[in-house]
């Protein structure tokens, strides 16, 4: 049987919220995705101990849990940086040049989508359409939207934001 996760980890207050989600679903296996959402909301990402605990509580085989975690783009098994830049790669944003924003990020900051800087300050993420296509191209810096900008404008804004953030 899977080894129980460390007690230290479980003493974290945030587990109460996650346990509440599982309880609401009577600890059924089908609560897995809802529970993973709650855990990621609480901890920012899903580490090995978290997954072990969830698997044990929902009596779900470890491989099934890991299979689900890696199937869905939203779930992250590594911590994100303190600041995140999200580049929308939906069609409207692509047609309006966000592919070049990604290329620019790689060229100037050596960050590919999914990467975090070595000092853990900044993460670059891509999402498949935030649904704000009329504002294309859309880039989201720490939750605030940079919209309808040319490549030069948006990269200038990103540079400024990165300087402030870093």
């Amino acid at each position: 049987m899977p080894t129980p996760p460390s007690d230290l980890h479980l003493q974290d207050k945030r587990w109460e919220t996650i346990d509440r989600v599982m309880r609401r679903h009577d600890f059924r296996q089908d609560a897995l995705i809802e529970t993973l959402h709650a855990a990621q909301d609480a901890f920012g990402y899903l580490d090995a101990d978290t997954l072990r605990h969830i698997a044990a509580r929902l009596k779900t085989p470890p491989s099934k849990v890991y299979g689900v975690v890696t199937f869905y783009n939203h779930f992250k098994t590594k911590p994100k940086g303190e600041h995140t830049l999200v580049v929308c790669t939906g069609t409207a944003c692509h047609v309006k040049g966000n592919d070049r924003v990604l290329a620019w990020m790689e060229e100037h900051y050596q960050l590919k989508p999914g990467d975090t800087t070595t000092d853990n300050r900044i993460s670059l993420l891509e999402v498949r359409c935030v649904g704000a296509c009329a504002l294309a191209p859309v880039v989201i810096a720490d939750g605030s939207i940079i919209a309808k900008k040319s490549l030069a404008e948006s990269t200038a804004m990103i540079r400024e934001w990165l300087n402030d953030a870093a």
């Binding site: 491989s63 299979g67 890696t70």
Partner: peptide, 17 residues
């Protein structure tokens, strides 16, 4: 013990976590 991790062309069989 087994399940599939990742998806699409990156899918792989894996054990446990």
């Amino acid at each position: 013990t087994w399940d599939v991790k990742n998806r699409g062309i990156r899918s792989l069989i894996m054990a446990d976590f």
